[in-house]
Design a protein around this nucleic acid. Sequence first.
DNA 1: ATAATCAGGACCAAGTCAGTCCGGAAAGGC
DNA 2: GCCTTTCCGGACTGACTTGGTCCTGATTAT
Lengths: 158, 158
Amino acid sequence: MLRLSKLTDYAVVVLIRLGEVDRTAPDCVQTSPGLSAGTGVPEPTVAKVLKALASASLVSSQRGARGGYRLMRPLTEITVADVIIAVDGPIALTACVEGSTTCCDVSSVCAVKGRWDLVNDVIRESLASITLADMRLASVPLAFRVPAEHAILSSAAE
Amino acid sequence: MLRLSKLTDYAVVVLIRLGEVDRTAPDCVQTSPGLSAGTGVPEPTVAKVLKALASASLVSSQRGARGGYRLMRPLTEITVADVIIAVDGPIALTACVEGSTTCCDVSSVCAVKGRWDLVNDVIRESLASITLADMRLASVPLAFRVPAEHAILSSAAE
DNA sequence: ATAATCAGGACCAAGTCAGTCCGGAAAGGC
DNA sequence: GCCTTTCCGGACTGACTTGGTCCTGATTAT
């Protein structure tokens, strides 16, 4: 099924939410309980996702009272590939890709070596070409996609 | 990790194997024990994969004694997407893609609806652009990629 | 008739993942 | 200086998916 983990899905939701508030109040951080309330994702899960995003430097964290999280880059500069790698680890369709240690227990099958690399590269490239800003637009119903929407986004891209 | 199932990997191996012998003896079918021996993949697993491929009409089967499997299209006309769909079902990165019934138990999250469709389409397109013939070439070491290789392939594509 | 072969299931073990929780450390507020 | 808030890093568990096997029945050549 070529499935993507749910955590990645949540990460996108949370990041977009972060981006929306960041835009209106750039200095304001958001706490994980707050993001949970704003997105509907259970709080512990939000926290888990944010940890992963923080260690991948997609968000920065501020500890202590009045602490919270903030985007380190605008949504236009975060790609889907970035998020997947941050949450799920490196993008590798099979165990038999370059840099894998557990490669090919069945030796005869591994005439296959390197076979999927081509596919992997194409996928990686595709995922790196889509930003969260693109996904955000896609998720907004057409009726709400007023010109102002684009104005805000493009100003954020500057 | 965006992982692909092993079955799909095996399917590619088996299909390419089928394609290689098909080329030299177009009327000759191959049995699943034979394909198992030729690829190193355990026989029951080969059988399982072949069943899936047969019901997706990627290979045709001949029952009875001296029966076996044969490709229905040359390798140049079988895409990676075809194989994935045959073995793993429709390509859908998340549960929340068009046509899913179990969509979005958490209603607030599902402001997300349709968000991944864009990504899905790009992936699908990428996978549909790579054929097994492409993968076969990629798996053959450069030293063996003699001109004759291409001649054979292009004759098979006719 | 018999042997070979595919068809279509059911079935089980193992690995993986989502989700939760806990103790600890940093940063403000009183 | 103490306490609250918040993040950090990990361990843990229950459920699900997947890989892999096997069995019974249908089909066909010899």
